[in-house]
Amino acid sequence: MDFKTPMFELIKDASTNLPRDVIDIMEEMRAKEEADSNAKSVLGTILDNVDLAKVEQLPICQDTGMIFLDIYYPSGFSTLMMRKEINEAIKEATQANFLRPNAVDVVTGKNTGDNIGNGSPSIYFNEWEKDYFEIRLMLKGGGSENVGIQYKLPDSTLKAGRDLDGVKRCVLEGVFKAQGLGCAPGILGIGIGGDRGGSYYLSKKQLFRKVKDASPDKELAVLEKDILESANKLGIGPMGFGGLTTLLGVKIGTYHRHPATFFVTITYLCWAGRRKIMTLRQDGGYDID
């Protein structure tokens, strides 16, 4: 089946068309920011940019990121085939300027020019029992990736114990450290538990949730709301210029942990939260949300 065409459309849509729920929350927050404030003006510029990018099909942000894909596929399909077609779609999307070439050899410093390299794109394949594909794509810039951080509890400097209060303490410090550097206002994906690598994957996966949804776990839902409200009291604001809107959302997921470890991993998604989910059926039909 043709994987390449829908993949190209998914990349194009993610690069140029910001998800509606992210736009809605920024409009809501702009209305709440003080009149004549930098915060209100920055959010206004951001929303104008989002409109322009959609109308003219331009990348919302020039940093189209390290390409992250979390793929769910029916039994019987080859991940080698999918990877090949995905790479072809990425090369075409780079040619068409929906992606900036972002894969740089660590030793030689050479940019491959087409976004294909060792570990690039970053793909997680998951076989599932359903008969269709779900392809989750995130284009996340390097600036926001750089402010991600992993804590291990306990952390005595933060008086953070191995419990949910400890999680809140280190996350708030993480947001403080990020200031405006990750292009605030951001959305936090938080992974608790797992091994170090798994905790990062878990934190990134949370960012595919809608910005206003709540965790199905009651205690985590309370914690998400509490961290969001507390972090917005820091006053960092859009771009770090000050204001009420430091974060747009907080999403928490958990893995079981080893008795000796307690990782809290934060992935910071900039306001340009270019994440899209494509449902692809075996007859080739697809929807992008």
């Binding site: 104008d48 322009l52 990018a53 940019n111």
Partner: peptide
């Protein structure tokens, strides 16, 4: 300070590319 991520909008204020040097560094660099 320019507005981070407002790339399409800022792109419109770039009226002309007069030249590029060391393109071998890669497009971003």
């Amino acid at each position: 300070h320019a507005i981070g991520g407002a790339a399409a909008l800022i792109g419109k204020s770039v009226k002309e590319v007069l030249g590029v040097e060391r393109l071998d560094f890669g497009m971003p660099e």
